[in-house]
């Protein structure tokens, strides 16, 4: 699992790097000013809470308290679903304001990046529900809590990726750190001759 996560770091690293390198290169259409920080802050908080729920689920299972484990597994999955809901709302809003992957570079890099992240969350939710139902027919029990631990590892990872995206794309995109990141981005871009 660690090997998979290492690989996935590269996966998202490439996506985020592409987004940063292409920042400020869109010539038309809406860009970062379209991002709604308050709303996304709420959804980020929801995702963070789901990580907490995940920890509680695992701890419940390890102590053999199946009821607790089930409750928190379901809570994690539900909180994840709420996050996905927020994201779908956000995408729909953007489409209303004329930002689709085709509109400009910002649209392409931002939507594909967050879309891949959303897909990771969705896969995680499916995984969590599968574990949830598996607790009822005895396939998941105190003895094989590793199964849940691995799912948790994945879930925390997806959560951390979101924190990075939220920090680098949303906050930096909308607030003052603008110039610094732009400078850093352009310095990196200059070294590799992009942008």
């Amino acid at each position: 699992m660690w090997a998979f996560l290492g690989s996935d770091v590269l996966f998202f690293g490439t996506l985020i790097a592409t987004h940063l390198v292409y920042r400020g290169q869109s010539v038309s259409g809406p860009t970062e000013n379209i991002l709604d920080i308050p709303i996304t802050s709420i959804s980020t908080f929801v995702l963070l809470m789901s990580s907490l729920a995940m920890v509680l689920a695992l701890s419940g299972l390890q102590r053999g308290k199946m009821g607790e484990a089930r409750f928190w597994l379901a809570a994690t999955a539900l909180l994840g679903s709420v996050f996905i809901g927020f994201q779908m709302y956000e995408f729909a809003e953007f489409a209303n304001e004329g930002l689709t992957p085709r509109t400009n570079l910002f649209g392409s890099t931002f939507l594909i990046m967050t879309g891949f992240h959303g897909t990771h969350v969705a896969i995680g939710i499916l995984w969590l529900w599968s574990l949830f139902f598996a607790t009822f027919n005895g396939k998941i029990h105190q003895g094989n809590s590793l199964e849940v631990e691995i799912a948790g590892l994945y879930w925390h990872f997806v959560d951390i990726v979101w924190i990075v995206i939220f920090g680098v794309v949303y906050l930096v995109g909308a607030y003052g750190a603008e110039e610094h990141v732009e400078e850093a981005g352009h310095a990196a871009a200059a070294i590799f001759g992009i942008g």
Binding site: T18, Y22, Q25, L105, G193, I194
Partner: peptide
């Protein structure tokens, strides 16, 4: 990722490598 970008460019008209005037960079 590169192949995914290209797939999106070819199937869904995104702008990763094609829209030179709009800032895409083939490099």
């Amino acid at each position: 990722i590169a192949l995914a970008f290209l797939t999106f460019d070819r199937f869904f008209d995104t702008n990763f490598f094609v829209d030179i005037g709009a800032g895409s960079d083939p490099l």
